[in-house]
Amino acid sequence: MFMEENMILQVENICKHYQQFALNNVSFALPKGAIMGLIGENGAGKSTTMKALLGMISLDSGKISIFGHEGITAQDREAIGVVFDELAFNQTMNVSDIGKVMKNVYRNWEPEQYQQYLEKFKLPQKKQIKDFSRGMKMKLSLAVAMSHHAKLLILDEPTSGLDPVVRAEILDLFLEFIADGESSILVSSHITSDLERVADYITFVHQGKVLMSKNKDDILYSYGIAKADRETIHSLNSSLVMKIKDGKYDSEALIRDKESFSKQYPNVLVDAISLDDLMVMLCTD
Protein backbone atom coordinates (compact mmCIF):
# COMPACT_ATOMS: atom_id res chain seq x y z
CA MET A 1 0.00 0.00 0.00
CA PHE A 2 2.83 2.38 0.83
CA MET A 3 6.37 2.81 -0.37
CA GLU A 4 8.86 1.67 2.21
CA GLU A 5 10.70 4.97 2.34
CA ASN A 6 7.50 6.66 3.46
CA MET A 7 7.42 4.54 6.58
CA ILE A 8 8.76 5.85 9.82
CA LEU A 9 8.08 2.60 11.60
CA GLN A 10 7.64 -0.94 10.36
CA VAL A 11 6.85 -3.89 12.55
CA GLU A 12 6.97 -7.32 10.98
CA ASN A 13 5.81 -10.48 12.70
CA ILE A 14 7.25 -9.80 16.10
CA CYS A 15 6.83 -12.50 18.72
CA LYS A 16 7.58 -12.43 22.41
CA HIS A 17 6.57 -15.18 24.79
CA TYR A 18 5.98 -14.79 28.48
CA GLN A 19 4.57 -17.35 30.84
CA GLN A 20 1.13 -15.82 30.96
CA PHE A 21 1.07 -13.85 27.76
CA ALA A 22 2.55 -13.70 24.30
CA LEU A 23 2.85 -11.23 21.46
CA ASN A 24 2.02 -13.24 18.43
CA ASN A 25 3.16 -12.16 14.96
CA VAL A 26 2.42 -8.50 15.51
CA SER A 27 2.77 -6.48 12.30
CA PHE A 28 1.90 -2.94 11.28
CA ALA A 29 3.45 0.06 9.58
CA LEU A 30 3.25 3.74 10.40
CA PRO A 31 3.77 6.24 7.55
CA LYS A 32 5.43 9.63 7.95
CA GLY A 33 3.16 12.46 9.03
CA ALA A 34 0.49 10.22 10.48
CA ILE A 35 -1.06 9.28 13.80
CA MET A 36 -1.67 5.64 14.53
CA GLY A 37 -3.87 4.56 17.39
CA LEU A 38 -3.07 1.29 19.09
CA ILE A 39 -6.32 0.04 20.52
CA GLY A 40 -7.09 -2.91 22.71
CA GLU A 41 -8.42 -3.81 26.12
CA ASN A 42 -6.13 -3.72 29.13
CA GLY A 43 -3.54 -6.45 28.86
CA ALA A 44 -4.01 -6.88 25.11
CA GLY A 45 -0.34 -6.23 24.40
CA LYS A 46 -0.21 -2.52 23.64
CA SER A 47 2.45 -1.70 26.22
CA THR A 48 4.48 -4.80 25.42
CA THR A 49 4.44 -3.85 21.75
CA MET A 50 5.70 -0.38 22.61
CA LYS A 51 8.41 -1.80 24.84
CA ALA A 52 9.52 -3.98 21.96
CA LEU A 53 9.69 -0.96 19.64
CA LEU A 54 11.81 0.90 22.17
CA GLY A 55 14.22 -1.98 22.66
CA MET A 56 13.22 -2.39 26.29
CA ILE A 57 12.61 -6.08 25.79
CA SER A 58 14.25 -8.57 23.47
CA LEU A 59 12.28 -10.28 20.72
CA ASP A 60 11.88 -13.98 20.20
CA SER A 61 11.47 -13.35 16.49
CA GLY A 62 10.39 -10.71 14.01
CA LYS A 63 11.75 -7.46 12.73
CA ILE A 64 11.34 -3.81 13.69
CA SER A 65 12.55 -0.95 11.52
CA ILE A 66 12.56 2.61 12.79
CA PHE A 67 13.58 5.51 10.53
CA GLY A 68 14.23 3.04 7.72
CA HIS A 69 16.65 0.67 9.40
CA GLU A 70 16.52 -2.31 11.67
CA GLY A 71 17.57 -1.97 15.30
CA ILE A 72 17.43 1.12 17.44
CA THR A 73 20.55 3.23 17.97
CA ALA A 74 21.31 6.01 20.45
CA GLN A 75 20.96 8.42 17.53
CA ASP A 76 17.48 7.08 16.82
CA ARG A 77 16.59 7.65 20.45
CA GLU A 78 17.50 11.32 20.03
CA ALA A 79 14.60 11.56 17.61
CA ILE A 80 12.05 9.59 19.60
CA GLY A 81 9.86 11.07 22.31
CA VAL A 82 8.32 8.66 24.77
CA VAL A 83 5.52 9.00 27.26
CA PHE A 84 4.64 6.15 29.59
CA ASP A 85 1.31 5.94 31.34
CA GLU A 86 2.99 6.94 34.59
CA LEU A 87 5.34 9.87 34.93
CA ALA A 88 8.88 8.46 35.07
CA PHE A 89 10.77 11.30 36.69
CA ASN A 90 11.74 11.48 40.28
CA GLN A 91 8.85 13.50 41.60
CA THR A 92 10.81 15.30 44.27
CA MET A 93 12.27 17.34 41.41
CA ASN A 94 10.68 20.41 39.83
CA VAL A 95 10.23 21.12 36.14
CA SER A 96 13.34 23.26 35.84
CA ASP A 97 15.45 20.44 37.33
CA ILE A 98 14.08 18.18 34.64
CA GLY A 99 14.92 20.76 32.01
CA LYS A 100 18.52 20.79 33.20
CA VAL A 101 18.73 17.01 33.19
CA MET A 102 17.28 16.72 29.69
CA LYS A 103 19.54 19.43 28.36
CA ASN A 104 22.40 17.11 29.21
CA VAL A 105 20.69 14.03 27.85
CA TYR A 106 19.39 15.13 24.45
CA ARG A 107 21.79 16.75 22.02
CA ASN A 108 18.92 18.56 20.33
CA TRP A 109 17.23 19.74 23.49
CA GLU A 110 15.47 23.10 23.01
CA PRO A 111 15.24 24.94 26.33
CA GLU A 112 13.05 27.67 24.80
CA GLN A 113 10.61 25.21 23.36
CA TYR A 114 10.42 23.39 26.68
CA GLN A 115 9.82 26.72 28.39
CA GLN A 116 7.06 27.53 25.91
CA TYR A 117 5.30 24.29 26.65
CA LEU A 118 5.61 24.84 30.39
CA GLU A 119 4.01 28.23 30.00
CA LYS A 120 1.36 26.97 27.63
CA PHE A 121 0.47 24.19 30.07
CA LYS A 122 0.74 26.55 33.07
CA LEU A 123 3.15 24.29 34.93
CA PRO A 124 4.82 25.98 37.91
CA GLN A 125 8.63 26.10 37.81
CA LYS A 126 9.47 25.52 41.42
CA LYS A 127 6.76 23.23 42.69
CA GLN A 128 7.64 19.61 43.33
CA ILE A 129 6.18 17.42 40.62
CA LYS A 130 4.56 15.09 43.10
CA ASP A 131 2.11 17.87 43.93
CA PHE A 132 0.98 18.07 40.30
CA SER A 133 -2.37 16.69 39.17
CA ARG A 134 -2.41 13.74 36.82
CA GLY A 135 -3.15 16.06 33.92
CA MET A 136 -0.20 18.28 34.76
CA LYS A 137 2.11 15.29 35.02
CA MET A 138 1.00 14.09 31.62
CA LYS A 139 1.53 17.54 30.13
CA LEU A 140 5.02 17.60 31.60
CA SER A 141 5.81 14.22 30.06
CA LEU A 142 4.57 15.50 26.71
CA ALA A 143 6.55 18.72 27.04
CA VAL A 144 9.73 16.67 27.53
CA ALA A 145 8.88 14.31 24.68
CA MET A 146 8.26 17.22 22.30
CA SER A 147 11.16 19.51 23.13
CA HIS A 148 14.01 17.73 21.40
CA HIS A 149 12.96 17.69 17.74
CA ALA A 150 11.54 14.20 17.91
CA LYS A 151 10.32 12.71 14.66
CA LEU A 152 8.41 9.93 16.32
CA LEU A 153 6.35 10.00 19.47
CA ILE A 154 5.53 6.76 21.22
CA LEU A 155 2.84 7.41 23.78
CA ASP A 156 1.35 4.86 26.12
CA GLU A 157 -2.13 5.84 27.30
CA PRO A 158 -1.42 9.57 27.39
CA THR A 159 -5.06 10.57 27.80
CA SER A 160 -6.29 8.06 30.35
CA GLY A 161 -7.57 9.60 33.56
CA LEU A 162 -7.65 13.11 32.12
CA ASP A 163 -10.67 15.37 31.89
CA PRO A 164 -12.16 16.18 28.46
CA VAL A 165 -10.70 19.70 28.35
CA VAL A 166 -7.14 18.52 28.88
CA ARG A 167 -7.69 15.63 26.46
CA ALA A 168 -8.84 18.02 23.76
CA GLU A 169 -5.76 20.19 24.33
CA ILE A 170 -3.47 17.21 24.03
CA LEU A 171 -5.16 15.92 20.90
CA ASP A 172 -4.68 19.33 19.27
CA LEU A 173 -1.03 19.15 20.19
CA PHE A 174 -0.80 15.85 18.33
CA LEU A 175 -2.25 17.37 15.18
CA GLU A 176 0.18 20.25 15.45
CA PHE A 177 3.07 17.85 15.91
CA ILE A 178 2.39 15.95 12.69
CA ALA A 179 1.56 19.09 10.69
CA ASP A 180 5.07 19.15 9.15
CA GLY A 181 4.25 15.96 7.30
CA GLU A 182 7.44 14.25 8.49
CA SER A 183 6.73 13.42 12.11
CA SER A 184 4.48 10.63 13.31
CA ILE A 185 2.81 9.49 16.47
CA LEU A 186 2.04 6.01 17.75
CA VAL A 187 -0.43 6.34 20.57
CA SER A 188 -2.12 3.66 22.60
CA SER A 189 -5.41 4.23 24.31
CA HIS A 190 -8.46 2.43 25.46
CA ILE A 191 -10.40 5.67 25.13
CA THR A 192 -11.32 5.11 21.53
CA SER A 193 -13.24 8.34 21.04
CA ASP A 194 -9.96 10.27 21.27
CA LEU A 195 -8.46 8.23 18.50
CA GLU A 196 -11.65 8.35 16.49
CA ARG A 197 -11.03 12.05 16.13
CA VAL A 198 -7.37 12.44 15.35
CA ALA A 199 -5.91 9.08 14.35
CA ASP A 200 -5.22 8.30 10.71
CA TYR A 201 -4.69 4.60 11.25
CA ILE A 202 -6.04 2.21 13.79
CA THR A 203 -4.38 -0.99 14.91
CA PHE A 204 -6.46 -3.32 17.01
CA VAL A 205 -4.60 -5.58 19.40
CA HIS A 206 -6.29 -8.42 21.18
CA GLN A 207 -4.64 -11.16 23.24
CA GLY A 208 -1.26 -10.36 21.78
CA LYS A 209 -2.41 -10.43 18.18
CA VAL A 210 -3.21 -7.73 15.66
CA LEU A 211 -6.84 -8.15 14.64
CA MET A 212 -6.86 -5.27 12.23
CA SER A 213 -4.57 -2.45 11.12
CA LYS A 214 -6.29 -0.01 8.79
CA ASN A 215 -7.03 3.49 7.65
CA LYS A 216 -9.47 4.86 10.20
CA ASP A 217 -11.98 6.26 7.72
CA ASP A 218 -12.09 2.93 5.94
CA ILE A 219 -13.05 1.34 9.23
CA LEU A 220 -15.61 3.93 10.28
CA TYR A 221 -17.31 4.30 6.93
CA SER A 222 -17.19 0.84 5.47
CA TYR A 223 -17.81 -1.33 8.51
CA GLY A 224 -21.23 -1.48 10.04
CA ILE A 225 -23.41 -3.46 12.37
CA ALA A 226 -26.47 -5.21 10.99
CA LYS A 227 -29.23 -5.57 13.55
CA ALA A 228 -32.23 -7.83 13.34
CA ASP A 229 -33.89 -10.78 14.99
CA ARG A 230 -31.79 -13.83 15.57
CA GLU A 231 -33.24 -15.79 12.66
CA THR A 232 -32.61 -13.07 10.11
CA ILE A 233 -29.05 -12.46 11.26
CA HIS A 234 -28.19 -16.14 11.25
CA SER A 235 -29.69 -16.62 7.81
CA LEU A 236 -27.41 -13.96 6.30
CA ASN A 237 -25.35 -15.72 3.72
CA SER A 238 -22.67 -13.27 2.85
CA SER A 239 -18.91 -13.12 2.86
CA LEU A 240 -19.32 -9.60 4.22
CA VAL A 241 -20.48 -10.87 7.59
CA MET A 242 -17.45 -11.06 9.86
CA LYS A 243 -18.92 -11.95 13.19
CA ILE A 244 -22.27 -12.58 14.80
CA LYS A 245 -23.28 -11.78 18.33
CA ASP A 246 -26.56 -12.84 19.88
CA GLY A 247 -28.36 -10.72 22.43
CA LYS A 248 -31.42 -11.51 24.42
CA TYR A 249 -33.83 -9.70 22.14
CA ASP A 250 -31.89 -9.31 18.93
CA SER A 251 -28.73 -10.32 17.12
CA GLU A 252 -25.97 -8.27 15.58
CA ALA A 253 -23.59 -8.96 12.77
CA LEU A 254 -20.38 -7.14 12.02
CA ILE A 255 -20.43 -6.17 8.34
CA ARG A 256 -17.32 -5.47 6.33
CA ASP A 257 -18.63 -3.41 3.42
CA LYS A 258 -21.93 -1.96 4.44
CA GLU A 259 -22.75 -0.43 1.06
CA SER A 260 -22.50 -3.74 -0.76
CA PHE A 261 -24.26 -5.46 2.08
CA SER A 262 -27.20 -3.07 1.90
CA LYS A 263 -27.53 -3.79 -1.81
CA GLN A 264 -27.58 -7.48 -1.04
CA TYR A 265 -29.96 -7.17 1.90
CA PRO A 266 -31.84 -3.89 1.48
CA ASN A 267 -34.27 -4.72 4.26
CA VAL A 268 -31.73 -5.33 7.01
CA LEU A 269 -30.90 -2.35 9.19
CA VAL A 270 -27.20 -1.49 9.19
CA ASP A 271 -25.91 0.89 11.84
CA ALA A 272 -22.79 3.01 11.58
CA ILE A 273 -19.99 1.75 13.79
CA SER A 274 -17.77 3.40 16.34
CA LEU A 275 -14.33 2.14 17.25
CA ASP A 276 -15.77 1.13 20.60
CA ASP A 277 -18.45 -0.98 18.93
CA LEU A 278 -15.84 -2.56 16.76
CA MET A 279 -13.60 -3.31 19.71
CA VAL A 280 -16.44 -4.94 21.58
CA MET A 281 -17.47 -6.91 18.50
CA LEU A 282 -13.96 -8.11 17.79
CA CYS A 283 -12.89 -8.79 21.34
CA THR A 284 -15.84 -10.69 22.75
CA ASP A 285 -16.68 -14.25 21.94
Partner: peptide
Amino acid sequence: MRALARDLHISVITTKR
Protein backbone atom coordinates in the same frame (compact mmCIF):
# COMPACT_ATOMS: atom_id res chain seq x y z
CA MET B 1 -4.79 19.48 4.33
CA ARG B 2 -2.61 19.32 7.45
CA ALA B 3 -3.53 22.83 8.53
CA LEU B 4 -7.17 22.08 7.87
CA ALA B 5 -7.00 18.90 9.94
CA ARG B 6 -5.40 20.78 12.78
CA ASP B 7 -7.95 23.58 12.67
CA LEU B 8 -10.93 21.26 12.44
CA HIS B 9 -9.46 18.92 15.08
CA ILE B 10 -9.78 15.92 12.81
CA SER B 11 -7.37 13.45 11.32
CA VAL B 12 -5.23 14.21 8.29
CA ILE B 13 -6.42 11.09 6.54
CA THR B 14 -9.91 12.59 6.50
CA THR B 15 -8.94 15.94 5.01
CA LYS B 16 -6.71 14.12 2.57
CA ARG B 17 -9.63 12.04 1.38
